[in-house]
Each structure stands twice: as structure tokens, then as C-alpha cells.
Amino acid sequence: MKRLLYLLILALSSCVGTDFVDINSENIELINPIQSLAKGENYLFETKYTNILGGEENVKVYWESTDPDIAYIDGNGVVSGIDFGEVTVAYTVKNVQGAITFVVAQETIQDVQKTATFQGKGKYNAQGTALLYKNIENELILQLLNDFDTDFALGTFVFLSNSTDGQIVKASGLNLGEITSGGAKSFNITSADAGVGIDRYQYVVILCQPAGITFGFGKFN
């Protein structure tokens, strides 16, 4: 009888199953974005394309300027500052497109810092500021500032992702580490994945990682 009961319990208590998440990893990243381009100067944009399987591929990029009278861009990604003003350059590979907006001005300034302001998702709370920048060793760093705070559960992690959907963040985002308190903290993204550039991810996400629930997120400017 004991054996029968034991078998019944085992039969009715399932093994750990598998959830399948269908994520298209295709992405185009501008490796060296700029804030401004000096009038009369040329600048070579570089990109990194990731295919749907998450692998890097060397493919043809199609470039387009919204106003060639301000900034002209050729087929190789070389942009020329023609006249003062604001302009957007779009870059397209297969099914993905990215764009960068910058000004033609007195000097060329590389975009080495992005900021994001946290907001809660649903009724969950997240607030404060995140900074994404390259340090003097050229490592990419995510800094959560003193004003950062969020709801917590067991297994609250900081992720970089191109989505705020908890299941997609969990399956395809870059996990930077667990947090258990608010306030200032720093994450070395280059140490986590040396191939990540400043333009790779759109969002910093606070995730209850085991269940895949997004507490909050900030979108990089």
C-alpha cells in the first residue's frame, strides 16, 4: 500500500518542464555613434549585424540621410558634414533598421554616454536614473545613480534588453547581476559580454528573473 501511494504521488507530480520563447535576435547596432559632426569633416560609421540566430554576420548595409544638404552619406557609411543643422541617418540590413540623429556643428563629438530614467511597469515601482558610458579603459559601464530604487523580490536582476516584456528579457537580455537594494551601483558590461557596444540595447530592465516579471525599465536616450 505504501509503495502504491508513493507511485501515485510521483505520477501526479510532474518533472520540470520547458517553456519555449520564440525570439528573433536579428539586430543592427551602430558601434560608434556621434552627438555632433564637424562641418566639412568625414566620419566612418561602423555597424554590427546580428542574425536571427544571434550570430554576427558581415553583410551589406544601406545608408540614407534625411537631408543630404546637411549631412551626406555614401554607400560605405562615410558621412560628410555639409552644413549646420540637425539630421537623421538611417541604416538598414535585411529586415532591421536603425537610425541616429545628430547635428552638424563646429566639432565632432562621439556619443560615449547615454542616460535612462526608470519607470515602473504595471503597478510595480522603479525610479531613478541609469548612465551608460565608456570608462578610460574603454569598458562599457552601466551606472545606477543614488536616486535609483525599485520593488524587490527574491531574484531581482538588472538586465539590458531590446524589449521590456519579462519573458523576452529573461530569455534574450544581458543579465548584469542581482540587486537587493536601491541606491548607486555599477556594472561592467564589457566584462559580461565584450562584444556589446553602447548602442546594442535600448532598455535597462529590472526583472524578477525566476518568474520573468518586469518591475521597471528605462529607455536610453
Binding site: T18, D19, V21, L53, G212
Partner: peptide, 23 residues
């Protein structure tokens, strides 16, 4: 007297990468 709780593993169907579950 016997409670079993499980968390499914998660598999990215495009990359095949699997995040482990728990029990």
C-alpha cells in the same frame, strides 16, 4: 506532507540557449 513546486526551464527557440529551471 509532500509539496512539489517547479519553475520551468526557458529555451530560446532561435538560439537554442536554455536557462535552467528549478524545483
Amino acid at each position: 506532507f509532500f509539496v512539489r513546486s517547479t519553475l520551468n526551464e526557458v529555451q530560446n527557440t532561435q538560439t537554442g540557449v536554455i536557462l535552467p529551471g528549478d524545483e
